[in-house]
Amino acid sequence: MNVFRLIGDMSHLAAIIILLIKIWRSRSCSGISGKSQLLFTAVFTCRYLDLFTNFVSIYNTTMKIFFLASSYATIYLIFMKFKATYNRNHDTFRFELLIVVSVILALLINHEFSATEILWTFSIYLEAVAILPQLFMITKTGEAESITSHYLFALGSYRGLYILNWIYRYYVEGHLDWIAVLSGIVQTGLYCDFFYLYITRVMKGKNLTLPA
């Protein structure tokens, strides 16, 4: 554990909590992509199966359980409790494609051809692109509520901070997992446009509207 990873994890945690608060307080999941949330739930489920086989630390176990539980809770709120507020007609990204490509890549490029390792690799590839339906939805509607943009900023920052963590671990611990590193770079890269808009607009108190 180093400071980059800790802040990254806290940023990830904050993102999830911000999203739950937004939906719960407004009694609405308007502007949120249910497809991205389904993908994140698949990511956590495939990656954290090792909860039962591999103990790392109390911290690690607690976080995994929280991420799993909160992602299922989010899915429940979007598709059941507040489903009347879900903007289904704006959430039209073909997310099946992301799953198919991630499965194929995980089967081809992995550290070891075993079930758990391929599921882990699949979760890493899928996480890298899981935000695309959400970003697509914002592009389509041309705007996002400020709380939704805070959510996205925290969620995007988390993997960016992990990159710093991987640089640190490479030099200090000699640890390098290039599957995670390359995927993390792709994942953070997808947020670049959004980060720019967030810093130039939302941080100055304006709404996140896309330039025409």
Binding site: N54, M63, E112, Y162, A180
Partner: peptide, 10 residues
């Protein structure tokens, strides 16, 4: 190096 079975990150 790969690090199978030592995925200690979240």
């Amino acid at each position: 190096r790969g690090n199978k079975n030592s995925h200690d990150e979240l």
